[in-house]
Amino acid sequence: MHKYRISKYDPLFRDETGCYQKNEWTAISDIGKSFDGILLTDEEYIRVEDKYIDAVKLIIKFHSLTSLSVANLCHSFSKDEFLNLIKPYSQLYSESLLDFYTNFNGSQAGLDEVESLCRLQLREDIGVDIFSPRKLKIFIGYDYLMGVKSSKSLEPIIPEISALGLFVEKIDL
């Protein structure tokens, strides 16, 4: 298996132990705050979130998949808590995404559903495993970190992912 870290974080800002040294936003809750004198707006947040979604789509297409398996879906909040917590960011939650949060409980996800699963993970609203057995596993964790385990090297599509403005780091197993 090939393992990668894909993120908005430039590896040039990691110290010798791998810790990221630059002050950057890491969550939807950072909207409205400034980082190195730059205000994180809704628009900038969505622009970066879309890069991650586009990278996931590229990876799925590269593997010629039309769906992924879903396991261990865990909602971070009850529906009422969730609706209360997202009030400051409600403009970023479409009706279809809210409906998806409440009603999705499948074991397979098509591409549109994978997009919703990834958005909700990036926003720390859910935890979930999305994968294709023996081919692909995509991990999205806190602080806007994404990992990929792939049965084949992603080298052919790294330039496309990089062109999105994300950094791809190969992780030695």
Results as ranks from 00 to 15, higher is better:
Leu111Met: 14
Ser107His: 10
Leu120Met: 04
Ser132Ala: 15
Ser94Val: 02
Leu120Glu: 06
Lys61Thr: 09
Lys61Ile: 08
Glu81Pro: 04
Ile126Thr: 07
Glu95Cys: 03
Lys61Glu: 13
Ser116Gln: 14
Ser67Gln: 14
His63Cys: 10
Leu120Val: 04
Asp129Pro: 00
Lys135Leu: 15
Gly110Ala: 08
Ile138Tyr: 07
Asp99Lys: 12
Val70His: 04
Gly106Arg: 10
Asp99Ser: 14
Arg134Phe: 13
Asn103Thr: 15
Ala55Lys: 05
Asp129Cys: 07
Lys87Arg: 13
Cys74Glu: 15
Glu124Asn: 13
Ser94Trp: 07
Ser76Phe: 07
Asn103Tyr: 05
Glu113Thr: 12
Ile130Tyr: 04
Ile140Gly: 08
Pro133Ser: 12
Gly106Cys: 08
Arg134Glu: 15
Cys118Tyr: 03
Glu81Gly: 05
Tyr101Ser: 04
Pro88Gly: 02
Phe62Ser: 05
Gly110Thr: 13
Ser90Thr: 13
Gly106Val: 12
Glu81His: 04
Ile138Thr: 10
Ser78Thr: 15
Val128Ser: 07
Phe62Met: 06
Ser116Pro: 02
Val114Gln: 03
Gly127Val: 12
Glu115His: 09
Leu68Arg: 06
Asn105Gly: 12
Leu65Cys: 09
Cys118Met: 13
Tyr89Asn: 01
Ser96Arg: 12
Phe104Met: 05
Val114Phe: 04
Tyr89Arg: 08
Arg123Ser: 06
Asn72Cys: 12
Ser116Asn: 08
Val56Trp: 00
Tyr89Cys: 09
Glu95Lys: 09
Lys87Trp: 03
Leu120Ser: 09
Leu83Arg: 09
Ile138Met: 01
Ser90Asp: 15
Ile140Ser: 04
Gly127Ser: 14
Asn84Ser: 12
Thr102Val: 08
Ser132Arg: 11
Lys135Tyr: 06
His75Asn: 11
Leu73Val: 07
Asn103Val: 02
Lys79Gln: 10
Ser94Glu: 00
Gly106Ala: 03
Val70Met: 09
Leu98Pro: 04
Leu122Arg: 07
Leu58Glu: 09
Leu68Gln: 11
Glu115Ile: 03
Asn105Tyr: 01
Tyr93Asp: 08
Leu73Ala: 05
Leu117Lys: 09
Glu95Pro: 04
Gln121Lys: 14
Ile140His: 03
Leu83His: 00
Pro133Asn: 10
Asn103Trp: 07
Ile140Lys: 06
Gln91Ser: 15
Glu81Thr: 09
Val56His: 08
Val56Gly: 02
